[in-house]
Each structure stands twice: as C-alpha cells, then as structure tokens.
Design a protein around this nucleic acid. Sequence first.
DNA 1: TGCTACATGTAAAATGTTACATGATTCG
DNA 2: CGAATCATGTAACATTTTACATGTAGCA
Lengths: 191, 191
Amino acid sequence: MALSYAILSLLTRGDASGYDLLKSFEGSVANFWYAGHPQIYKELAALERRALVSHRVVVQDGRPNKKVFRITPAGREDLLRWLRSPHRNERHNSLATLKAFSLHLLPADEAIAKVEELATEGRKELERYRAIEKMLAPLAENSGAMLSAYLSVLFGLNYAEAYQRWCAQAKALLLKAAARAEGRASRARRR
Amino acid sequence: MALSYAILSLLTRGDASGYDLLKSFEGSVANFWYAGHPQIYKELAALERRALVSHRVVVQDGRPNKKVFRITPAGREDLLRWLRSPHRNERHNSLATLKAFSLHLLPADEAIAKVEELATEGRKELERYRAIEKMLAPLAENSGAMLSAYLSVLFGLNYAEAYQRWCAQAKALLLKAAARAEGRASRARRR
DNA sequence: TGCTACATGTAAAATGTTACATGATTCG
DNA sequence: CGAATCATGTAACATTTTACATGTAGCA
C-alpha cells in the first residue's frame, strides 16, 4: 500500500528501472520508508497489473537489459487521491524505546552505558542527516520535487535531534536515580 | 522477535493474562510498539513453546476463566541477553513523510493545507503525551520499572515535539516557495 | 582472482492486520 | 435493550525479511 506510493512518487520524478528505484530508496526514500529489492520488484509487478505503471525493455550492451517503468495517468490519479486523503495518525515502533522500557532490569551503571550506546548510534544518524540537509538545502529552492525531498530529509533531521535530546534526558534521569539509590545505601551503612 | 521482548518486559512487572497484556499495550507499550490481540495471543503461545513463559488457569466466577502468564528464569535471561546486545540503528517508516515526499504534486495552497492537517493530527498526539508525562513524572521517582515506563513516554513526547517543529518548518518553506512562484508570475504579467 | 556494480527475479519464513467467532456481565 | 468490558482464540490475508538463484563487466 504505502510502498506503492513511494514508488509512484519516485516515478513522478522520471522513468526508472527496478534497480534505479532500489538505489533511490537507499539514497533518500529509505530515510522514511525502507524497502529491499524483492519488495520493489514485487510491488512494480503489482502496480503494472493494476495499470498504474507501464514498462518498456531497454536493451543495453555490456550490461543486462532493463525494464524501465513509467507512471501512467491512472497511477498519477491514484497517488494524488492518496495524497489528498485525510491523514490519520500512525503508530511508530521503536526498538530503542522498547529497550528503554526494560532498563530497570540492568544495574544503574550498565543502564547508563546502554543509553550512551544508543546516543552514539543516533549521533551517526544525526550527522548523516545534517550532511544530506546541507547538500539539499540550496537545491530545494529551485524545484518543487527537490523541495519535497528536502522536507523529507528535514523530517529525519528533526527526529534524529529529538532522539539525541531524549538520550540526554534519559541519562540525566538514570544518574539522578542512581544518586538517590546511592544516598539510601550510604545512610543504611551509617546506621 | 521484538514483540516477545515487549511481552517479557511487561511480565517482569508482574504476572498477567493475554487480556491484561493487551490493556497494557494500549495504555503504554503501544506508544512505541503496537500489537493487536491476535498477535499477543500468538506470541504468548510461541513464548510458552520456548519455555520463556508459563501459565496457570485462574477460574473466576461471573467472568470467563483466564490464563495468567509468568516469565520463567529462562525468559528473564533471554530478555536480558537482548537488552545487553549491541544496538543497531533501525529504520523508521513514516507515512507523513511519505506524503511530504509527494507534496510538489499539489498546488501550493493545497500543499500548505495538507501540512496544517498533519500538524493538527500531531498536536493531538503531543497533548496526549504531555498528559501522560505529567501523570508519570512523580511516579518515576519511586521505582525503576516506573522510570523505565517514564523514559518511554518521554521518547514519544520528544518525537511528537519534533513532529510539530517539522510541520512548522515545512509550512514556512512551502509559503516561501509559493511567494517566489507568485513573484515570478507577477513579473511575467508585467512584461 | 576476488570484489563491486549492474540487473532481475523466486521461495520461504516471519510478522502483522483484519475479519470471524463466542459468550457472560455490568452499566446506562 | 444496547453498548462496553472481560476473555480467548482461529482464519485469511497482506506485508516484510532473508535466503536462494543467475550472470556480465570493470576494477584493483
């Protein structure tokens, strides 16, 4: 469902083969919608059955032939219908938060180390988004399609920043809890 | 996989039936990991096959009998092993961003209205998280399990705030682009 | 010679969602 | 009397992930 709209949206930017789409996913779409190649090829076949895309075979020499897909007018209509349809809230799954939800099972120092690990992983993500953002910012001024792509990157950037903030808050709270526990323990020792 | 850890984590807080777990999901876990009842019952059966949980039947009068599940020592070990395992970055899917990625296909005013719609939906989410956060903040000071739960809510809160920021940025950029386009159009008219 | 990029697919397994199915009790 | 809560499951479907499968060209 959603995947088909990711593919259709990419095809509004120009015709592409399954492989091209795969590379586009890796380069931009994967930031907010991941798909591997089996899914992309399968979805392209499904889209073609529904006449939302069509393809022609391009014969290349020295390289394998490729199927170049194009969005059909019906495909454009379908994409626009979805785009205009009212948006309802989604649920986002987060493994990091799922880990946080069990953090009380670890000794304080280990819990804090784990949060630092999460932060480190997230920082890489943040740097990546910052780099893409810088590259795209000037391009976004020119074309609508580029602006759309830029907005998507901005989204990832905002989320990566929020993740860093959360990691910092979590660390602070865990430190505070550890200090309280330490206080209790030393008072008990003195008795 | 991940779902099993959500269930095991809840069971470290006390024994529970599938129905209890379902309610816990709706009340807290669903904020970062959604599961409907068919998934929960299926996963409980799978966990029991792997001897990570066990159950006893509690006969109730006036109400249906229930199966109360308890985490086994093996279950605790499994949860801790996962918790301690190195964390690799996940990919987050976002329908909102997927819509943003196609926003150039809409006329400027409609694109802006769509972003406002996204913001409105997100604001509800934000308010919800704010309310839970306020409720949980004092409780988080007492127990480790509560602190873990609080951290998870903080995560949702940070993300909801980031979403609002993104909506605001997106709206500003779309307005700027519309103004530029309008400028070009009026210059063309004067010629 | 081995790795990467190009290029396309299928098969199987795991996960997740929606619909179907049942039945008692309590509250308005 | 109808709706919500308690309580458990199955079946069918859709989606996603991982592994299998193949083959050329260019580079180090």
